[in-house]
Design a protein around this nucleic acid. Structure first.
Lengths: 333, 333
DNA sequence: GTGAAAGCGCTAACAC
DNA sequence: GTGTTAGCGCTTTCAC
């Protein structure tokens, strides 16, 4: 197979390489007829410009990197889908990296990316409390960086997040408004910042809108059976009439517990949960959820990054997207 | 910021560019001391070789492309995770593309990828009945291609799939063996080949292992409420004692129907379903699932592709990975 | 064991 | 409106 490069096209058409190059980029200096001929041949031979060559020459690759912790829950899958929509629409490609919660891996990715392979980086920070030297370095090298979801206040880059605090207040208040007098908050033992922020929202709402004498916070482990036992124990002892789960998985476990100890939802106890799972509506018709705008976070972050890459100015603006409270109707109608 | 390229390193160390290059690639022609010095400086300055330059020079990019329909269900998320594990381990990167079920988009991706941007392609075909000219072209150009999950028998490339037919037989047989006399199969109306293959498995098992006089197949739409009504209607009319759902979502809807019309699972009716959802165990403690080895499919496909790229021979082998039947114990212990 | 130089495919500055 | 040419940063002959 003859390899088809710009030189081959030029020879074939009896034109100079540069003429062909210009024609392909639709330069105004080239006559319509010439362009026509070039386009036709390029199309016929399915010519594709060599990405490495134009990248090397122009110092840009039309590729961005997306670095996230992992894809074990729906949240990041949806974010990726949002990113894909924008990159695809704007003629960009993206490389995907998982840090698996390993800060050192994040550092290593970021460092090796600063080599012309990508035009910019979208990052959800693995360990928000760790140091940011690798990110500062990226900034110093002038490689655009946009942070999303898990961000660092210490970095001066554009950040795209959702309203974890406010939505936790909203969720808790929703339970209060629908009559709950004793609301429990289910959190996971692992201390990720977002869990703490949501907890503050819960506390704030109790303080402000409820007469509940004391918060009721249950720390659960990642083990389902352990969580089941802990929640059951708490429900039987404390008899809350409202549950705010910081994670969908906890809400589902809680639902099972209620089933087993014969608590009716929502008559005896109301449950509300953070969730991005698309099948949430099916899990339990009475489960109300707070849903982060995951897809929109992806779209927005990608859009911001591409804007910066293209140096289309505009105010550098952090974006906070609103979560939505979704009350489930029964699927049975 | 001074940009750090190989030339800069060379000047700094009073060496020739080629010497530095060789040292960095750990060539045996270079003296240990020189190597040491080069490594030290490279490390100190966090030197990263320019990917476009080495790509252009060596006609390889260390990037592969992954082309899938989308990520709306867990299956492809898990596949991606498997791919990531292998590429990461072997020093490769991957670009991700979604076709969103659009064959023309797949063609366009594949065509533009044949330009040196990637060293190989992992593809789950969007429309298995459509033409493969774009893939043939990829083969002609000598760009390695491995197909997974949704493959085409007409292509001669390595294929990595799972045992849809056999596992459907297994699932149906499992219901028969546990005493079901009348088993219904829930399929989605959209005719994707995999649905048809699973249906054949269901039919085969009934034929071979059951005395059930006729198959009972219910086509459901994608609308949850419609599916709910159809399943309810079927359950009330036909009173099956076993359900084989080709999709997890259908199983969950079915579970809700049972709840509403007071059918006990698994006493009155047994349900088994294809599923990749990690929270499946939580959905219903009595839901038995057939789980595709999604992660392993990703790993295997990636491993095969990288093997081909590296031209490490070995038998060209299609791989069929086994699904696992998982009986749920109650989460309550 | 090290250096000089060609060239991967493309773009753009500079001719004409 | 088109052609000539100099690199982009790297690898790899080929010299010495």
């Amino acid at each position: 197979m003859n390899k088809i490069d710009i030189r081959y096209l030029a020879k074939e058409l009896n034109l100079a390489i540069s003429t062909v190059s210009r024609a392909l980029r639709d330069s105004h200096e080239i006559s319509p007829e010439t362009k026509e001929k070039v386009f036709a041949l390029a199309k016929r031979l399915n010519y594709q410009p060599n990405a490495n060559a134009s990248g090397l020459r122009g110092q840009k690759s039309k590729i961005i990197a997306v670095v996230i912790p992992d894809m074990v829950n729906d949240f990041f899958s949806l974010v990726i889908s949002g990113i894909e929509k924008i990159t695809q629409a704007q003629g960009y490609h993206f490389l995907l990296y998982f840090t698996h919660g390993d800060h050192a891996l994040e550092v290593s990715f970021i460092n090796t990316l600063a080599n012309g392979r990508v035009d910019g980086v979208l990052l959800s920070i693995t360990d928000e409390n760790n140091n940011n030297e690798h990110l500062e370095e990226l900034n110093r090298k002038g490689i655009p960086l946009v942070l999303f979801d898990r961000v660092s206040e210490r970095m001066d880059n554009v950040k795209v997040t959702s309203d974890n605090y406010e939505s936790a207040v909203t969720a808790t208040r929703h339970l209060i408004d629908t009559g709950c007098k004793k609301i429990a908050y289910l959190k996971v033992h692992k201390s990720i910042p977002v869990g703490t922020i949501r907890e503050s929202g819960y506390l704030e709402a109790l303080e402000k809108y409820s007469k509940q004498p004391a918060p009721l916070i249950l720390e659960c482990t990642n083990d389902n059976d352990e969580a089941f036992a802990a929640i059951r124990n708490m429900l039987e002892k404390e008899k809350p009439d409202g549950i705010f789960a910081s994670l969908e998985k906890l809400a589902v476990v809680c639902y099972r517990v209620c089933e087993q100890i014969q608590l009716k939802i929502p008559e005896d106890i109301k449950i509300i949960s953070f969730s991005n799972l698309q099948t949430a509506a099916l899990l339990n018709p009475s489960l109300t959820t707070i849903t982060q705008p995951a897809f929109e976070i992806g779209e927005t972050a990608a859009r911001e990054l591409l804007r910066i890459i293209r140096k289309k100015g505009g105010a550098k603006g952090d974006v906070v997207l609103k979560s939505r409270l979704i009350e489930r109707k029964s699927t049975s109608k």
